[in-house]
Nucleic acid binder design. Structure first.
Lengths: 335, 335
DNA sequence: TTGTAGGCGTTATCAA
DNA sequence: TTGATAACGCCTACAA
């Protein structure tokens, strides 16, 4: 059950443990023919190194950072909660994580955060900008592994992306929007910022499906609410003054403002939002929101840590390791 | 940097390593005041156990079985896939699992399977019957921990239930059924067997919400398709001959037959089914099915293994450890 | 009820 | 170039 060990390799190769170790971790100082003998023995025995034992002996501790925006989005709160819930298990696995909050949409602040990092790997949820790419390149050059979280940064050279397929998220929102709306009508789409890749991808997916299959609906120009409750509320009220709204797709945060605004509208528009937070959960329960599309943040944290651990150990993470699922919540299946 | 260890705890508590270990893993055989002293020392030192070291040292291997029906439900295939995906992590945690397939709805076969078990704990997905209860009692008496999977067996004395809230599943199906149906109409509900607890609970939840909020719809008497494709197909065709069908809720399996039948109907009824399998995935993609309510089998496997491990170690599993989430899939978010 | 001693698989420090 | 040998942190017979 417990497979061949270095002892077995040593025995087959007729050398000592130390020599096997030297070859295995190519530290040099071993004659060519002995190297060959050891390598052959590894193949012959089918030896696979036991990472746990290696880390135990090496007293390795994984230091990971999460660079994520703060704000009233509730996202950081959920992230903190998820990390707290995983804290114990993470500690047991020798990983220490630190959250570095940044001001939302503030590139300067994000850069500052990335400069002050001291860790083996970092999961970043930051803007897509050339300066950020440079910063990430510097981190990579310094041997820090970088994972993009929730919003991908494909042009940054990051090691991996952990998050949902945001185009799919937008398409899913559209599918339910189209089916929930009985007739035709105006659809209001509110993003936080179209410069945020997750938001623009969701918007893209949403528009694609609405135009493709539910073209009885009229898509109003996409608004930007900066993930701010007051701004979001204002956008809804302003829009509703000019014309009836049949549906609202809130792509980013600021749902507290959305609840206030939707409460004043009659008839109530079909309202679809992202992230299952205190606010959206309650709004779902009372019928103010009709659907919540949630990326399971706990799963995201677990996936991110797993990927960072693999990367830190120079292991290629499984292809789908970073893909996290979208959960759909109606008033009947809130958890 | 490398944190406190058992030695530190032992020193502070003025006891030996073995005693600390006994307290840490509550194995008993330690006087109350020493227990207190050790616990205080743990708090004082901030000790966190090193899982890698623990697993390395522990030669214990957990042997678990899954007794589940085979058949055209695709469930066993999904279960196998889920286990395969978890294999690596499970092996690292010293657990070996074996799948024992049984013929669906065949109580004799289920009993035979339960008799031939050799393991520390078993997760069973079997019928609710007195003979089964006896068999489970025998297992429990023999020291094998028993967990009911997907369908609960409350009267069997099983140690725990791992599965979804099936009433909630039915309620969720009704919520989407009500919203997807534009007007009013006849709703056909097809269970596998009303003697199966998961099926009857789903039906109950579905009926509750339909009557409560979508009473424009007419619920036809619930049919039983024995999870058999041909039977299910026949039921749909027979029903459609007499009256138009606006919606179909398929509570159990046999979705292959449902696909065939629905394909012949015009207009196509809103069709909501359970379990994301090859068949339902494809039907979702082509528009034959409108919604799939899926119990995440991978999550179920992980939860079941966790609960079985706790039970085997005589630890009371956390209250919500067995509750698994319901995922909702439309054509746009199939994974 | 408590303690001692040895081992899990790998790494690292000495000598030889 | 090589090889003993002692950690790493925890678990567990076996004693006492």
């Amino acid at each position: 059950m417990s497979g061949p060990t270095v002892r077995d390799v040593a025995e087959v190769a007729q050398v000592s443990l130390a020599t096997v170790d030297r070859v295995l971790n190519n530290r040099g100082g071993v004659s060519a023919k002995v190297v060959e003998r050891v390598k052959a023995a590894v193949v012959q025995t089918g030896y696979v190194r036991n990472l746990a034992a290696a880390n135990l002996s090496r007293r390795r501790i994984y230091r990971f950072c999460f660079v994520v925006p703060t704000g009233d989005t509730g996202f950081v709160a959920l992230l903190h909660a998820a990390l707290a819930q995983e804290q114990h298990r993470l500690r047991e696995e020798q990983v220490v994580v630190q959250i570095v909050p940044t001001r939302p949409f503030d590139v300067e602040d994000q850069i500052a955060a990335l400069r002050n990092l001291d860790c083996d790997a970092v999961a970043v949820m930051v803007s897509e900008a050339p300066e950020i790419n440079e910063e990430i390149a510097a981190l990579l050059a310094a041997g820090v592994r970088v994972v993009s979280l929730v919003a991908d940064l494909p042009s940054s050279g990051r090691d991996a992306y952990v998050g949902p397929d945001n185009v799919m998220a937008g398409r899913t929102a559209a599918e339910f929007m189209g089916r929930f709306i009985k007739d035709t009508g105006n659809i209001l789409m509110i993003a936080g910022s179209l410069a945020a890749r997750d938001h623009s991808e969701r918007l893209l997916g949403f528009q694609m499906v609405m135009q493709e299959r539910y073209d009885g609906c009229t898509l109003l120009p996409a608004a930007q609410g900066a993930d701010d409750a007051a701004r979001v509320e204002q956008i809804v009220m302003d829009t509703a003054r000019d014309r009836p709204i049949a549906g609202i797709y809130a792509i980013g945060a600021g749902n507290r403002g959305l609840v206030r605004a939707v409460g004043t509208l009659n008839p109530k528009p079909v309202t679809i939002v992202h992230e299952l937070t205190q606010v959206s959960r309650e709004a779902l329960r009372t019928g103010t929101f009709d659907l919540v599309i949630d990326q399971d943040i706990r799963a995201g944290v677990i996936a991110a840590v797993g990927v960072m651990r693999d990367l830190t150990d120079s292991i290629t993470p499984p292809a789908d390791a970073g893909r996290i699922k979208l959960n759909i919540y109606s008033r009947e299946n809130i958890q």
